[in-house]
């Protein structure tokens, strides 16, 4: 089936099978391999992307369902070679080690912070969002710090100690 996708602002026409997941199309047809695939059944969150601004598991969405929709992946976060505040915060706070889960976390929180710029003031929601994705290296403490730093940065507030 022919499908039109908008990915990071670019228009793509792809010929896919109905069974192809959005994650597979991004990686195999569009060569956007920043979106990682691990469990392929919605548990780990490595494949999280934004569809119409909402963080979703791209392994649990068919490409044919995304016809005409606006998709954002980790490749679209940095602009003109400058890291997105979330990416800069993950680097500054050592929010990654092996890096496999990082694109998923970045897109998860890119969506969450756009939806609620004061997410860091809603403890329950913040914890719950952190728990949405799996990281097996960092133990979440640094990821949490990175999210707090990025949230402040995105609101134009100075981080403590700067």
């Amino acid at each position: 089936m022919e499908v039109t996708l908008w990915v990071n602002g670019d228009r793509y026409r792809v010929d896919v099978e109905p069974r192809d997941s959005l994650a597979d199309t991004l990686r195999d047809d569009l060569a956007l391999t920043g979106t990682n695939l691990a469990c392929e059944h919605g548990v780990c969150g490595s494949c999280t992307v934004l569809v119409d601004g909402q963080a979703v598991r791209s392994c649990l969405l068919l490409t044919v369902q995304c016809s005409g929709r606006s998709i954002r992946t980790v490749e679209g976060l940095a602009t003109d070679g400058e890291l997105h505040p979330l990416q800069a915060a993950f680097a500054a706070e050592h929010g990654l080690q092996c890096g496999f889960c990082t694109p998923g976390f970045l897109m998860l929180f890119a969506g969450a912070l756009e939806h609620d710029p004061r997410l860091d003031h809603d403890e329950r929601r913040l914890e719950e969002t952190l728990a949405s994705n799996l990281c097996r290296c960092t133990g979440y403490v640094n990821i949490r710090r990175a999210v707090l730093r990025a949230a402040r940065e995105l609101r134009g507030e100075a981080s403590p100690g700067e």
Binding site: V56, R57, S132
Partner: peptide, 12 residues
């Protein structure tokens, strides 16, 4: 509702 899976799953 918060007991049902995670936010990205609950969105769908």
């Amino acid at each position: 509702a918060p007991y049902v899976a995670h936010p990205p799953i609950r969105a769908r």
